[in-house]
Protein backbone atom coordinates (compact mmCIF):
# COMPACT_ATOMS: atom_id res chain seq x y z
CA UNK A 1 0.00 0.00 0.00
CA UNK A 2 1.68 3.22 -1.11
CA UNK A 3 1.60 6.20 1.20
CA UNK A 4 -0.76 8.39 -0.73
CA UNK A 5 -1.88 11.88 -0.18
CA UNK A 6 -5.53 11.27 -0.69
CA UNK A 7 -6.16 14.75 -2.05
CA UNK A 8 -3.58 14.32 -4.73
CA UNK A 9 -5.07 11.03 -5.85
CA UNK A 10 -8.68 12.09 -5.72
CA UNK A 11 -10.76 14.22 -8.01
CA UNK A 12 -12.90 15.54 -5.18
CA UNK A 13 -12.09 19.23 -4.80
CA UNK A 14 -10.91 20.65 -1.51
CA UNK A 15 -13.94 22.96 -1.57
CA UNK A 16 -16.12 19.86 -1.65
CA UNK A 17 -14.11 18.29 1.17
CA UNK A 18 -14.54 21.36 3.32
CA UNK A 19 -18.25 21.42 2.53
CA UNK A 20 -18.58 17.75 3.46
CA UNK A 21 -16.77 18.38 6.73
CA UNK A 22 -19.16 21.23 7.57
CA UNK A 23 -22.14 19.08 6.70
CA UNK A 24 -20.99 16.16 8.84
CA UNK A 25 -20.28 18.46 11.75
CA UNK A 26 -23.80 19.91 11.48
CA UNK A 27 -25.28 16.41 11.36
CA UNK A 28 -23.43 15.52 14.55
CA UNK A 29 -24.52 18.74 16.19
CA UNK A 30 -28.10 17.91 15.28
CA UNK A 31 -27.80 14.44 16.78
CA UNK A 32 -26.62 15.85 20.08
CA UNK A 33 -28.50 19.15 19.97
CA UNK A 34 -25.21 20.82 20.82
CA UNK A 35 -21.51 20.80 20.10
CA UNK A 36 -18.79 23.29 19.31
CA UNK A 37 -20.26 23.89 15.88
CA UNK A 38 -18.95 27.45 15.52
CA UNK A 39 -15.38 26.18 15.85
CA UNK A 40 -16.00 23.23 13.48
CA UNK A 41 -17.42 25.44 10.75
CA UNK A 42 -14.57 27.89 11.20
CA UNK A 43 -11.76 25.33 10.99
CA UNK A 44 -13.27 23.14 8.22
CA UNK A 45 -11.16 24.66 5.44
CA UNK A 46 -7.92 24.15 7.36
CA UNK A 47 -8.85 20.54 8.11
CA UNK A 48 -9.80 19.88 4.48
CA UNK A 49 -6.44 21.19 3.28
CA UNK A 50 -4.57 19.34 6.02
CA UNK A 51 -6.18 15.93 5.46
CA UNK A 52 -6.67 16.10 1.69
CA UNK A 53 -3.58 17.97 0.65
CA UNK A 54 -0.83 18.04 3.27
CA UNK A 55 -0.94 14.92 5.44
CA UNK A 56 0.16 11.43 4.52
CA UNK A 57 -1.76 8.59 6.15
CA UNK A 58 -3.49 5.31 5.42
CA UNK A 59 -7.19 5.45 6.23
CA UNK A 60 -7.39 1.71 6.84
CA UNK A 61 -4.39 1.80 9.18
CA UNK A 62 -4.57 4.93 11.33
CA UNK A 63 -1.52 3.83 13.31
CA UNK A 64 0.68 3.30 10.26
CA UNK A 65 4.20 4.16 11.38
CA UNK A 66 4.86 6.37 8.38
CA UNK A 67 1.84 8.63 8.92
CA UNK A 68 2.09 12.31 9.57
CA UNK A 69 0.90 12.83 13.12
CA UNK A 70 -2.00 15.22 13.61
CA UNK A 71 -2.54 16.26 17.23
CA UNK A 72 -5.78 17.86 18.34
CA UNK A 73 -4.70 19.82 21.38
CA UNK A 74 -8.11 21.47 21.54
CA UNK A 75 -10.27 18.57 22.68
CA UNK A 76 -13.44 20.59 22.36
CA UNK A 77 -12.89 20.76 18.57
CA UNK A 78 -13.42 16.97 18.44
CA UNK A 79 -16.64 17.39 16.45
CA UNK A 80 -14.56 18.94 13.66
CA UNK A 81 -11.92 16.22 13.74
CA UNK A 82 -14.55 13.44 13.71
CA UNK A 83 -16.04 15.06 10.62
CA UNK A 84 -12.71 15.03 8.80
CA UNK A 85 -11.85 11.52 10.02
CA UNK A 86 -15.13 10.34 8.50
CA UNK A 87 -14.47 12.24 5.31
CA UNK A 88 -11.03 10.62 5.17
CA UNK A 89 -12.47 7.14 5.68
CA UNK A 90 -10.76 6.62 9.05
CA UNK A 91 -14.11 6.54 10.85
CA UNK A 92 -17.20 5.03 9.24
CA UNK A 93 -19.57 7.74 8.14
CA UNK A 94 -22.65 6.15 9.76
CA UNK A 95 -21.10 6.56 13.16
CA UNK A 96 -22.00 10.24 13.18
CA UNK A 97 -25.30 9.19 14.74
CA UNK A 98 -23.48 8.15 17.90
CA UNK A 99 -21.64 11.43 18.41
CA UNK A 100 -21.50 12.26 22.12
CA UNK A 101 -23.81 9.38 23.07
CA UNK A 102 -23.18 7.05 25.98
CA UNK A 103 -20.62 4.46 24.92
CA UNK A 104 -19.86 6.20 21.64
CA UNK A 105 -16.34 6.14 20.21
CA UNK A 106 -16.78 9.86 19.62
CA UNK A 107 -17.04 11.61 22.98
CA UNK A 108 -17.65 15.34 22.99
CA UNK A 109 -14.08 16.06 24.03
CA UNK A 110 -11.44 14.24 21.99
CA UNK A 111 -9.65 11.34 23.66
CA UNK A 112 -7.00 9.08 22.17
CA UNK A 113 -8.30 5.91 23.77
CA UNK A 114 -11.75 6.28 22.22
CA UNK A 115 -11.24 7.11 18.57
CA UNK A 116 -9.08 5.76 15.76
CA UNK A 117 -7.15 8.68 14.31
CA UNK A 118 -7.30 10.76 17.49
CA UNK A 119 -3.61 10.87 18.40
CA UNK A 120 -3.81 12.47 21.85
CA UNK A 121 -6.28 13.23 24.60
CA UNK A 122 -6.78 16.98 24.40
CA UNK A 123 -9.06 19.23 26.39
CA UNK A 124 -6.73 20.29 29.15
CA UNK A 125 -5.58 23.13 26.99
CA UNK A 126 -1.95 23.99 26.40
CA UNK A 127 -0.66 20.40 26.34
CA UNK A 128 -0.61 19.55 22.64
CA UNK A 129 2.44 21.48 21.55
CA UNK A 130 4.64 19.96 24.24
CA UNK A 131 3.56 16.46 23.24
CA UNK A 132 4.23 17.42 19.62
CA UNK A 133 7.78 18.41 20.59
CA UNK A 134 8.34 14.97 22.10
CA UNK A 135 6.87 13.17 19.09
CA UNK A 136 8.99 15.28 16.72
CA UNK A 137 12.07 14.38 18.77
CA UNK A 138 11.05 10.71 18.70
CA UNK A 139 10.50 10.70 14.94
CA UNK A 140 13.93 12.22 14.39
CA UNK A 141 15.50 9.66 16.69
CA UNK A 142 13.87 6.89 14.64
CA UNK A 143 14.89 8.48 11.35
CA UNK A 144 11.20 8.69 10.43
CA UNK A 145 10.60 11.59 8.00
CA UNK A 146 6.97 12.18 9.02
CA UNK A 147 5.74 15.57 10.20
CA UNK A 148 3.98 16.32 13.46
CA UNK A 149 1.10 18.77 13.15
CA UNK A 150 -0.38 20.28 16.28
CA UNK A 151 -3.72 22.05 15.96
CA UNK A 152 -4.17 24.53 18.78
CA UNK A 153 -6.30 27.59 19.53
CA UNK A 154 -5.68 31.24 20.19
CA UNK A 155 -6.89 30.69 23.75
CA UNK A 156 -4.00 28.28 24.23
CA UNK A 157 -1.59 31.11 23.46
CA UNK A 158 -2.24 32.18 27.04
CA UNK A 159 -0.88 29.04 28.63
CA UNK A 160 2.75 29.23 29.72
CA UNK A 161 3.23 25.60 28.67
CA UNK A 162 2.66 26.63 25.05
CA UNK A 163 5.64 28.97 25.18
CA UNK A 164 7.87 26.42 26.88
CA UNK A 165 7.21 24.17 23.89
CA UNK A 166 7.74 27.07 21.48
CA UNK A 167 11.23 27.62 22.87
CA UNK A 168 11.97 23.90 22.96
CA UNK A 169 11.06 23.43 19.31
CA UNK A 170 13.71 25.98 18.44
CA UNK A 171 16.30 24.48 20.76
CA UNK A 172 15.95 21.09 19.09
CA UNK A 173 15.64 22.55 15.58
CA UNK A 174 12.39 20.65 15.00
CA UNK A 175 11.94 21.19 11.29
CA UNK A 176 9.45 18.28 11.36
CA UNK A 177 7.05 20.20 13.62
CA UNK A 178 4.23 22.27 12.16
CA UNK A 179 1.95 24.12 14.54
CA UNK A 180 -1.44 25.27 13.29
CA UNK A 181 -3.12 28.01 15.33
CA UNK A 182 -6.83 28.65 14.89
CA UNK A 183 -7.05 32.37 15.48
CA UNK A 184 -10.81 32.85 15.68
CA UNK A 185 -10.29 35.58 18.25
CA UNK A 186 -12.58 33.84 20.68
CA UNK A 187 -12.13 32.11 24.00
CA UNK A 188 -14.51 31.27 26.83
CA UNK A 189 -14.93 34.77 28.29
CA UNK A 190 -14.16 36.94 25.28
CA UNK A 191 -11.45 37.88 22.84
CA UNK A 192 -7.86 36.64 23.22
CA UNK A 193 -6.71 39.92 21.64
CA UNK A 194 -8.13 41.66 24.71
CA UNK A 195 -6.42 39.23 27.08
CA UNK A 196 -3.11 37.44 26.51
CA UNK A 197 -2.87 37.37 22.71
CA UNK A 198 -2.08 41.03 22.20
CA UNK A 199 0.45 42.30 19.71
CA UNK A 200 1.61 40.83 16.43
CA UNK A 201 1.29 37.08 16.81
CA UNK A 202 3.35 36.21 13.75
CA UNK A 203 6.23 38.39 14.87
CA UNK A 204 6.18 36.80 18.32
CA UNK A 205 6.72 33.29 16.95
CA UNK A 206 9.30 34.60 14.53
CA UNK A 207 11.18 36.31 17.34
CA UNK A 208 11.37 32.93 19.09
CA UNK A 209 12.93 31.41 15.96
CA UNK A 210 9.95 29.81 14.22
CA UNK A 211 9.14 30.02 10.54
CA UNK A 212 5.87 31.90 10.85
CA UNK A 213 3.03 32.63 8.45
CA UNK A 214 -0.36 34.22 9.02
CA UNK A 215 -3.13 33.66 6.49
CA UNK A 216 -6.90 33.73 6.07
CA UNK A 217 -7.91 30.29 7.29
CA UNK A 218 -11.12 30.35 5.31
CA UNK A 219 -9.31 30.98 2.01
CA UNK A 220 -8.51 27.45 0.82
CA UNK A 221 -5.92 28.53 -1.70
CA UNK A 222 -4.05 30.54 0.91
CA UNK A 223 -4.26 27.65 3.36
CA UNK A 224 -2.87 25.18 0.83
CA UNK A 225 -0.03 27.51 -0.11
CA UNK A 226 0.86 28.09 3.53
CA UNK A 227 0.90 24.34 4.22
CA UNK A 228 3.18 23.82 1.23
CA UNK A 229 5.54 26.53 2.40
CA UNK A 230 5.57 25.16 5.95
CA UNK A 231 6.52 21.70 4.71
CA UNK A 232 8.99 22.78 2.08
CA UNK A 233 10.87 25.70 3.62
CA UNK A 234 14.51 24.98 4.39
CA UNK A 235 14.14 26.83 7.71
CA UNK A 236 16.22 24.96 10.25
CA UNK A 237 13.49 24.77 12.90
CA UNK A 238 9.76 24.50 13.61
CA UNK A 239 7.01 26.12 11.59
CA UNK A 240 3.76 27.78 12.55
CA UNK A 241 0.79 28.90 10.54
CA UNK A 242 -1.63 31.25 12.23
CA UNK A 243 -5.02 30.96 10.57
CA UNK A 244 -7.47 33.80 10.95
CA UNK A 245 -10.84 32.05 10.84
CA UNK A 246 -14.45 33.05 11.16
CA UNK A 247 -16.56 31.05 13.56
CA UNK A 248 -19.69 29.52 12.02
CA UNK A 249 -18.27 30.07 8.50
CA UNK A 250 -20.60 28.86 5.78
CA UNK A 251 -23.89 29.25 7.63
CA UNK A 252 -24.78 32.91 7.33
CA UNK A 253 -27.43 33.18 10.01
CA UNK A 254 -25.07 31.63 12.55
CA UNK A 255 -22.14 33.76 11.35
CA UNK A 256 -24.23 36.82 11.98
CA UNK A 257 -25.46 36.10 15.46
CA UNK A 258 -23.54 37.23 18.48
CA UNK A 259 -20.56 34.90 18.48
CA UNK A 260 -19.57 33.31 21.77
CA UNK A 261 -17.37 30.39 22.75
CA UNK A 262 -20.40 28.09 22.84
CA UNK A 263 -22.67 29.16 20.03
CA UNK A 264 -26.25 28.33 20.87
CA UNK A 265 -28.24 26.61 18.17
CA UNK A 266 -31.94 26.12 18.79
CA UNK A 267 -33.35 22.63 18.14
CA UNK A 268 -35.08 23.67 14.91
CA UNK A 269 -32.03 25.51 13.61
CA UNK A 270 -29.88 22.49 12.79
CA UNK A 271 -32.10 21.57 9.85
CA UNK A 272 -32.17 25.19 8.82
CA UNK A 273 -28.37 25.37 8.96
CA UNK A 274 -28.08 22.22 6.84
CA UNK A 275 -30.46 23.76 4.31
CA UNK A 276 -28.42 26.96 4.16
CA UNK A 277 -25.28 24.90 3.67
CA UNK A 278 -26.96 22.89 0.92
CA UNK A 279 -27.56 26.10 -1.04
CA UNK A 280 -23.86 26.87 -0.96
CA UNK A 281 -22.81 23.40 -2.13
CA UNK A 282 -19.80 23.63 -4.47
CA UNK A 283 -20.49 22.60 -8.07
Amino acid sequence: MPAVRIGAASNVSLEMRAWNIRRKALLMGEVQGQGYIGQALGIADVLAAAYFHALEYRPEDPEWEGRDRFLLSIGHYAIALYAVLMEAGILPEEEYETYGMDDSRMPMSGMASYTPGMEITGGSLGQGLGIAVGMALGLKRKGNPAFVYNLMSDGELGEGSTWEAVMSGVQWKLNNLICLVDFNNQQADGKPTEALAQGDERQKWEAFGWHAQRVDGNDLEAVVTALNVARETDHDGPRVIIFDTKMCKGVDFLENREITHFVRVEPDEWAKALAVLEKGKPQ
Binding site: Q32, D103, R105
Partner: peptide, 18 residues
Protein backbone atom coordinates in the same frame (compact mmCIF):
# COMPACT_ATOMS: atom_id res chain seq x y z
CA UNK B 1 -12.16 1.61 23.69
CA UNK B 2 -10.75 1.63 20.25
CA UNK B 3 -13.06 -1.12 19.01
CA UNK B 4 -16.51 -0.15 17.75
CA UNK B 5 -18.91 -0.03 20.65
CA UNK B 6 -22.57 -0.59 20.95
CA UNK B 7 -24.29 2.58 21.93
CA UNK B 8 -26.80 2.25 24.74
CA UNK B 9 -30.36 3.24 24.09
CA UNK B 10 -32.56 5.15 26.49
CA UNK B 11 -36.16 4.26 27.38
CA UNK B 12 -37.38 6.11 24.27
CA UNK B 13 -35.26 3.88 22.03
CA UNK B 14 -32.85 6.69 21.25
CA UNK B 15 -29.19 6.85 22.23
CA UNK B 16 -28.52 8.72 25.46
CA UNK B 17 -26.92 12.10 24.90
CA UNK B 18 -24.02 13.60 26.83
Amino acid sequence: KYEPRTVKLGPDGKPIAT
